[in-house]
Design a binder for these strands. Structure first.
Lengths: 343, 343
DNA sequence: TTGTATGCGTTATCAC
DNA sequence: GTGATAACGCATACAA
């Protein structure tokens, strides 16, 4: 029931070489024979064995992607961007989830190696840089997404987190707020840290001295945003007028925590998020946020990777860092401070 | 830089057969030799070529999963369940997204075939049954997730959609509601249809005659839930007291649409969703919903598949249909009708 | 306990 | 324009 090139050859009355030529669209086959072969292939529903091909050519037409998980809008959309670009170019995807666990990341590497992927995209990986270096030394073309190069010679694609953090904070500042809470995400991630840096810089530029107690821990989940604010309120009461959360999910959690205490958004407290997730427009009130072009990041990363894979040039192109711009999406969760003062 | 079994053999001063034995953990190798070989493997960072292995054994230790996309909570969690179970059992994952497009589903089939996956899990596929049949005839072990067998001899895993729909509706009914809107999801999906059937049955059992205008179209997106209610309100005004949405996202969209018209949830209108998505507890008001065990579905499907793959038995086990139970999660978006009557 | 030889399904090299 | 054949890296039947 499983046909091989040999079967096709026999039935079409040609050599396997000819079949192979047809398969790969090479010239040097008469239109007539080509037709015949194609017919047999169609009839049999034959498809060539990828493993035999890979074994022979050491090219798999496959790219590996390592991603923490598939939860939340971010990774899902990034994957979509990667997948469609890959597919358009005839490449397939092998996905490895690592659940934010370094050991599993390492497993992915061996997996990719064994599968002979032509290249890999590492999304938000946290492993130390040795891990990335290892991959490079093993001759893999790779690109890092949502992660800094840390001095390594790799292509990277990331959101302009710093500027996004700056914009968000500046926006609140211009609205008249100065007591602005920041809920950070996983603090060991570059993206979270840079948003934080943007926050700090914006405050500094306005000459506002930063209060360390205004920086709350979160982990990018809605729950963590909720808990952070709930805890803060219990400890400090309402001594702030605005919140900048490092992503929308935490912002939504924060709004809920405020709501539970009878504090209204945006009348009492303005909130701004980061991502522009699907839910943002439907939150009550609709969430003002920094839009991150997630799918585009996936696309760009894939294009970078494929261009690298297909570069015959031995002295590979120098590493490229692309920074995807962000936009401020104004909705209703942040308003001027003057319009409240209800406390 | 790329090592083969031959390199390992030479350096360890043994035959490739011995290396192969070590690799596969077979007995019949002296502890001493095994050690030595293992050391060389470690040193070289050698990992066996999956393609050569697959070519030889026609076993890839890989399962393919075809899924519409990775957006929203549902697919993400299902994939997580599949992935962890697969990994635990030494299987790897090849993911194919089809964006709800039949043609791309078909492409996935060929992909799986070429990659010689040992089995496949098809999630929410919509292709006609021939497509599934084709896969079966080609000797693939497959299991369908979130899809009915439609008379085919395949394992399936699905949520108890009918009962879930029934429970949700009954719950509203018991709260005193009788004018209950239903927002359906993609109507060609089994899951959406069954939730609808549950809704109809519950109404019927209570002797309430169903109003066709009470059934609104949606596509499982938040936006579609929002639009559906907005449109309905414009056409009919507020002639209902409750809404059952076929998933949480649409429920959230619906709440927003009501809110925009100054209609309060749950005081004026009760809303119930389906899924128990991550966002459900953080919506304002927290969403009452039917919990779907997404990750478990992924786990079960994978276990089913692996057991089938590993069944030496030629006359394969008869098809199994597992229905994963649902739970009603009471939160605050649905309340008794008596406590309002504010209109 | 260890090794030799064959073949899996392709592509590539060379001949015709 | 077409075909025979070696090789890719591994697992395995068979020897030793």
């Amino acid at each position: 029931m499983k046909y091989t090139i040999k079967n096709v050859a026999k039935i079409a009355n040609v050599s396997i070489t000819t079949v192979s030529r047809v398969l790969n669209g090479e010239k040097g086959v008469s239109p007539k024979t080509r037709r015949r072969v194609l017919n047999v292939i169609e009839e049999l529903g034959y498809s060539p064995s990828a493993s035999a091909r890979t074994l022979k050519t050491s090219l798999s037409k496959t790219i590996g992607i390592a991603v923490p998980d598939t939860l939340g809008d971010f990774y899902g959309e990034v994957i979509n961007g990667i997948e469609s670009t890959a597919t358009e170019n005839g490449y397939n995807l092998i996905v490895s989830l690592n659940h934010h666990i370094i050991k599993e990341e390492l497993a992915a590497v061996n997996f990719f190696k064994a599968k002979k992927v032509d290249g890999a995209i590492l999304v938000t990986t946290l492993g130390d840089d040795d891990y990335v270096r290892f991959l490079i030394e093993n001759g893999f073309d790779i690109v890092l997404l949502d992660r800094d190069p840390h001095g390594l010679k790799v292509d990277t694609v990331k959101t302009d987190n710093f500027h996004g953090g700056y914009m968000a904070t500046e926006y609140l500042l211009n609205l008249g707020h100065s007591a602005i809470l920041f809920i950070q995400g996983l603090s060991y991630l570059d993206s979270s840290r840079e948003r934080f840096n943007g926050y700090k810089k914006a405050l500094k530029d306005k000459g506002i001295k930063r209060d360390d107690t205004f920086v709350l821990d979160g982990d990018f989940t809605t729950k963590s945003g909720y808990s952070a604010i709930k805890r803060y309120l219990k400890g400090h009461g309402l001594d702030f007028t605005a919140i900048f959360a490092a992503n929308d999910q935490m912002a939504i959690g924060a709004i809920k925590a405020l709501h539970d205490k009878g504090i209204s958004v945006p009348e009492d407290v303005s909130v701004i998020g980061f991502d522009d997730s699907y839910m943002a427009p439907y939150v009550i009130p609709p969430l003002t946020t920094i839009k991150q072009r997630r799918e585009e990041m996936g696309r760009v990363a894939t294009e970078l990777l494929l261009s690298r894979i297909n570069s015959r040039d031995e002295r590979k192109k120098t590493p490229r860092q692309v920074i995807v711009p962000v936009d401020l999406i104004e909705r209703e969760s942040a308003i001027p401070i003057s319009s409240k003062r209800r406390r």
